[in-house]
């Protein structure tokens, strides 16, 4: 047997390079971008809409990219709120990747925005492996998903900058302790920031913006 050693094309390295290109492009345009991840129904779109309202009150222009396997429901919600938006249908892929986002940025009116929210596909596994080139990563957990979400996806949360524990006003009804979710997250990510939110009522939205660096 004959052994050959070397390095033959790191498939993840290509993703990191594409993400770095997106990051540079957004930096050059002076745009701050947030990768918004979380399970289906966690409240990602609603939280983005609430954050967009607050940011616009401060004179910042907000845009959004909606990533979904199919459909344009989130895109329509952004457009109805007057937010420049673009839909990426991943065609059954379970996450957005830097390549898709790079193409979306080519078609986006970047001169019309200061802040870009990129709403990832509802999924708590794969998006963690595919950085998009954003400034900050946010994962939205709703209390209705149970208080074991961090335990079930520890690698995802170990790499996430900010967690919004959403729908906290429902916690008592579903018998979930939001503090337990927060404690699990702080164990896997001592530097992460946790914010309790209830997007529908607007609770915690200012705190979430502060945690995201706005």
């Amino acid at each position: 047997m004959h052994d050959i050693t070397g390095s033959f094309g790191d498939v993840m390295q290509k993703q990191l390079e594409l993400a770095a290109q997106n990051y540079e492009l957004l930096k050059n345009r002076g745009i701050r971008a947030v990768n918004v991840m979380g399970a289906i129904g966690s409240g990602k779109t609603e939280l983005i809409l609430r954050m967009a309202e607050k940011l616009r009150e401060r004179g910042l222009r907000v845009g959004a990219i909606a990533g979904d396997v199919a459909g344009d429901d989130d895109y329509q919600r952004f457009r109805s709120a007057g937010i420049p938006a673009l839909q990426i249908n991943t065609g059954d892929q379970c996450h957005l990747d830097a390549h898709q986002v790079g193409h979306a940025l080519e078609n986006f009116p970047l001169d019309q925005i200061d802040v870009l929210f990129i709403e990832n596909v509802g999924n708590l596994v794969c998006p963690a492996d595919f950085p998009l080139g954003t400034d900050v990563d946010l994962v939205v957990i709703s209390v209705t998903e149970g208080d074991d979400m961090v335990r079930k996806h520890p690698k995802m949360f170990a790499q996430t900058d900010v967690v919004a524990i959403n729908k906290v006003d429902l916690a008592a009804f579903v018998g979930v302790d939001p503090e337990r979710i927060a404690a699990d997250y702080k164990k896997v990510n001592p530097h992460g920031k946790v914010v309790f939110t209830a997007a529908k009522s607007g609770r915690g939205v200012d705190e979430l913006l502060a945690a995201l660096g706005f």
């Binding site: 047997m1 004959h2 052994d3 050959i4 050693t5 070397g6 390095s7 033959f8 094309g9 790191d10 498939v11 993840m12 390295q13 990191l16 492996d129």
Partner: peptide, 13 residues
């Protein structure tokens, strides 16, 4: 810690 790359081959001559 994020790599996925081929680093070697074993070839049967």
């Amino acid at each position: 810690g994020r790599d996925l790359a081929i680093v070697g081959l074993s070839v049967d001559e």
